Simulated scan of single mutants.
Amino acid sequence: MPGSSLWLVPPPSHPLHEVLSQLIESTLPALFAHAESRSVPFSPHLTLTSNIDPAKYGSDPQAWLDSIPFPTASDIDVKFERVKTENVFFRRCYIKCEWDGAHEVAAIARARGVTGEETVQQTTLKWLAEWKEAFGPHVSLMYGDMPIDEAKLDEIEQAVKDAGITLEPTHDHVGAADGWVGGTVWLVPTDRPIPDWKPIATRTLQ
């Protein structure tokens, strides 16, 4: 993946951090134990934007990250909807998230990181509409080339529920969907191999 990315990560103390990590690192790969391709582990996150030119943050990535006027933590409310799959390596399987609680933080990340706008203006708004139409905010569960048919997707969704995650209420369960409020933003050089995707700057939203 070219350039760097801004990720929204669940607060370290949030139970979802451990639950998602377990799903990504062991539970879901085990469902593909006999496949030619298996998912590569990564930290749980919601990608706010990618394709950030490293020249944007230069030699002081922390100062650049601290300068972005993110919404307050209480205005960021990530809510899970359903498990989906696409025939795309980095969207092989993911949890789609509600639009309202995540798009504003993604918009300012895109504006400052990619489109060069100080605030969210026309170029970012155009991207935002395209992003929403394409796939929108989501939390990845698996990367890879493994085929996922409807039966396998049902199996993955059941594993997610068995891990204790409540998705958007449907006919088979009730209650509020899981997710998190606020979180920590990571700046990650995603032009490196996936095992090297580590933050070079972090910021806990207040």
Score class of each variant (00 low, 15 high):
Pro169Cys: 12
Trp64Arg: 10
Ser67Asn: 12
Ala30Phe: 02
Pro41Arg: 03
Leu65His: 07
Ser39Val: 12
Glu98Trp: 07
His173Val: 03
Ala151Pro: 01
His173Asn: 09
Asp172Leu: 04
Ala177Met: 05
Val114Leu: 03
Thr184Glu: 10
Glu81Thr: 15
Leu205Met: 00
Glu157Tyr: 02
Val105Pro: 02
Lys96Phe: 01
Leu46Pro: 04
Pro11Tyr: 08
Ala55Cys: 01
Val114Ser: 04
Pro10Val: 01
Gly179Ser: 10
Lys96Arg: 14
Leu48Cys: 00
Ala151Glu: 13
Val120Glu: 02
Pro147Phe: 13
Leu46Arg: 02
Gly58Lys: 03
Ser67Ala: 04
Phe80Thr: 01
Asp196Ser: 11
Glu36Lys: 02
Leu125Ala: 07
Thr47Cys: 02
Lys79His: 09
Lys161Gln: 03
Gln122Val: 12
Ser140Pro: 07
Tyr57Gln: 11
Ala73Pro: 11
Asp53His: 05
Arg82Glu: 13
Ile24Pro: 12
His17Pro: 15
Ala134Pro: 00
Val78Phe: 00
Arg38Glu: 15
Ala163Val: 05
Tyr94Ser: 11
Glu18Val: 13
Leu6Val: 01
Glu130Gln: 10
Gly182Glu: 09
Ala163Pro: 07
Ala129Val: 15
Glu81Cys: 10
Ser67Thr: 08
Gly136His: 01
His14Pro: 00
Phe90Trp: 08
Pro189Asp: 13
Val174Gln: 11
Pro29Ala: 12
Ile52Val: 14
Asp66Gly: 07
Phe42Cys: 05
Ala163Cys: 01
Pro61Thr: 05
Ala201Cys: 02
His34Met: 10
Trp99Lys: 02
Gly101Asp: 03
Asp53Glu: 08
Ala55Val: 13
Thr85Met: 06
Val19Ile: 12
Ala63Asp: 08
Lys132Asp: 07
Glu98Met: 05
Val9Trp: 00
Trp127Pro: 15
Glu118His: 14
Val120Met: 00
Lys84Met: 10
His34Tyr: 09
Leu205His: 00
Cys97Glu: 02
Val120Tyr: 03
Gly116Ile: 10
Val185Ile: 14
Ile68Trp: 06
Arg82Leu: 12
Glu104Trp: 00
Ala151Trp: 07
Ser43Trp: 04
Ser39Asp: 11
